[in-house]
C-alpha cells in the first residue's frame, strides 16, 4: 500500500504494489486527464512525469515509484515549461479529437525540460512514441518549436 506524491500532494493508495500507476491516477485519485490508450506502452496517451521525466503510466507499477514526484496533465500548467507548452498548443490549435493530447503535452514538456532548443531529430527521438490518430503531428512539431522560442 504505497504512498504516492502526485502533483505535490501525498496519496495513500490502497492497492497492490504491482498495479500500474494509470489505474491509481484515474480510478483511485480521480485524475482522469491521463488517458488509457493501448495499455502496453506503445501509444503514449498515458504519459506522466516522474521527477520531470516522461514515463508511460500504464505499465509502471506503483510499488516501484517510491518518493519520486509524479506530475500529471492536471498540474503541468503550474510549471513554467508546462504553461508555455499549453499556451503554444492553444495558440495554433494543435488539438483535433484530443484523446492523445495530454500525453503529447507531457512528452513535449519533458523534452523541453531536458533540451530547451530541440531540433527535428530531438523532437523525433522524444515524441515518436506518442501516436496521434488524427495526424496532428505537423502542428505538434510547430507548437514545440514555438514554445522553445518563447523561453
Amino acid at each position: 500500500m504505497p504512498t504516492l506524491r502526485i502533483n505535490g500532494q501525498s496519496h495513500l493508495i490502497d492497492a497492490p504494489d504491482d498495479m500500474p500507476l494509470l489505474w491509481a491516477l484515474r480510478d483511485m485519485v480521480g485524475l482522469t486527464g491521463t488517458k488509457f490508450g493501448c495499455g502496453i506502452a506503445q501509444c503514449g496517451a498515458c504519459t506522466v512525469h516522474l521527477d520531470g521525466k516522461a514515463v508511460r503510466s500504464c505499465l509502471l507499477p506503483i510499488g516501484s515509484i517510491g518518493n519520486q514526484a509524479i506530475t500529471t496533465i492536471e498540474a503541468i500548467g503550474d510549471t513554467a515549461t508546462g504553461a508555455k507548452v499549453q499556451k503554444a498548443w492553444l495558440d495554433i490549435e494543435v488539438v483535433q479529437c484530443g484523446y492523445c493530447q495530454s500525453g503529447q503535452i507531457m512528452a513535449a514538456t519533458a523534452l523541453l525540460n531536458a533540451t530547451p532548443k530541440p531540433d527535428d531529430n530531438d523532437i523525433d527521438a522524444a515524441m515518436a512514441g506518442n501516436i496521434c490518430r488524427c495526424g496532428t503531428y505537423v502542428r505538434i512539431r510547430q507548437a514545440i518549436k514555438n514554445a522553445a522560442v518563447s523561453a
Partner: peptide, 22 residues
C-alpha cells in the same frame, strides 16, 4: 533502426537500456 527504437521501443526499454517501467 534508431527511428523504430524511438517510436516502438524507447518508451518501455528507455534510451539507457535500463527500463524506467519494469
Amino acid at each position: 533502426g534508431a527511428a523504430i527504437f524511438a517510436s516502438a521501443c524507447a518508451s518501455c526499454h528507455s534510451w539507457t537500456g535500463v527500463s524506467s517501467l519494469s
